[in-house]
Amino acid sequence: MIAVVVVRDGLLPAGGAETVAECAGRAVLIGSQASIAAVALHGIAVELTLVERDSFQPASFAGDLAAILADESIVVLPASPDGRDLAPRLAAGLQRPLHAGATAVNADRVDLVRNGGRDLHRVVPADRFVATLQPGARGVIVEQLLPAPATRNVVSPATQLVDAVVTAVLPPDPATVDLAEAARIVGGGAGLDGPERMQQLAEIGLKLGASVGATRVVTDRGWAAHERQIGTTGVVVSPHLYMAFGIAGAVQHTSGLGDPAHIVSVNTDPHCPMMQLADLAIVSDANETIDALQALLA
C-alpha cells in the first residue's frame, strides 16, 4: 500500500498524514515544496518519494505518477479536494477500480461512507485498486522516536496534458476567518425548518461569543453562504465548544470539526453519529429548542 498526497506550498492537505499512516508510512508526495511537507510527516512516514511540481494539474500529475505507481497494487489518496480530483484520473490511467470515500482501507477490506454518511458499504477489493480515505476517519499517532523517513526525489520532466490554468490562489475567505479560528461554534443542519433558523443561531452565537457554521445540506439550500460550510470540502475548524442543531454528524462534516472539548447535539434521532459524539446529547426538536434557547439567553 502506498499513499499519494498532493502538496501545495509545502502544506499537507486534510487527511494527508492519516493517509500516509494508513499505508504504514509509505507515500509519494507530489506538488510544490514537497520536501517541506515531508518534514511534517516525521514520526509517521517511513519511506517517501518526492515529486516536485508547481501548480496542481490533475491530468498531468496522473501522467507523471502512472510510471511511479505501476508496481504498487494499492494506492490511497486523502479524500481532500485535490485527492478527490486526482484519484479517478489515476485509477483511469492505471486501469484499476476506484473506491472513493473510505474510512478504512486494507488489502482484503474497504469500508466506504455512503448516503450522506448514513451507511457504510463494505467491499472486498480486487488485488489492485485505488482508494481515497476520508479525512478525520482514522487519526494518527506521531511516534517521536521513529527515524527520519528514507526519501527519494524523482526528477522527471512533467507530462504535459490538457489541464485548466490556475490564474489565482485565494487565501481563506475573510468571511470564514472568524469560523476557522472560532473557539465556539453553533452549527445548523438539515434538521432546521427554515433559513431564518440560521439567523436565530447567529443571534444565539452573539450571546455566546460563538461563530455560526453549517452543514453541506444547509449551504446547498442557500440558507447559509458556502463559506459557512464546515467539513472536508468546507472550512476546517477547531473550536472548544461545538453546538450542533439538527446535524446528523456525517464523517464529511465531523472531519472538519477538529477535537472540540465539548459537543452539544440536539437531534430527533438519538442514534445518529452526532449524538454519539456529543457530551450533551438531547433528543428534542431543534427548531423549538432554538426558540427556547434564544428566549433564555435574551
Binding site: 478525520g136 465548544l241 465531523t254 477538529g258 459537543i263 457530551d279 446529547a281 426538536d285 439567553l297
Partner: peptide, 26 residues
C-alpha cells in the same frame, strides 16, 4: 476527539427543558 465516541447518555427533553439543560451545561 470529534470522531471518537463520547460516553454520555442521551436525554429526551421537551424543547424548553432542552434549552435550560443546555444553559446549565454551558
Amino acid at each position: 476527539g470529534a470522531t471518537a465516541t463520547a460516553q454520555h447518555d442521551v436525554e429526551t427533553l421537551a424543547p424548553a427543558d432542552a434549552a435550560a439543560r443546555i444553559v446549565d451545561a454551558l
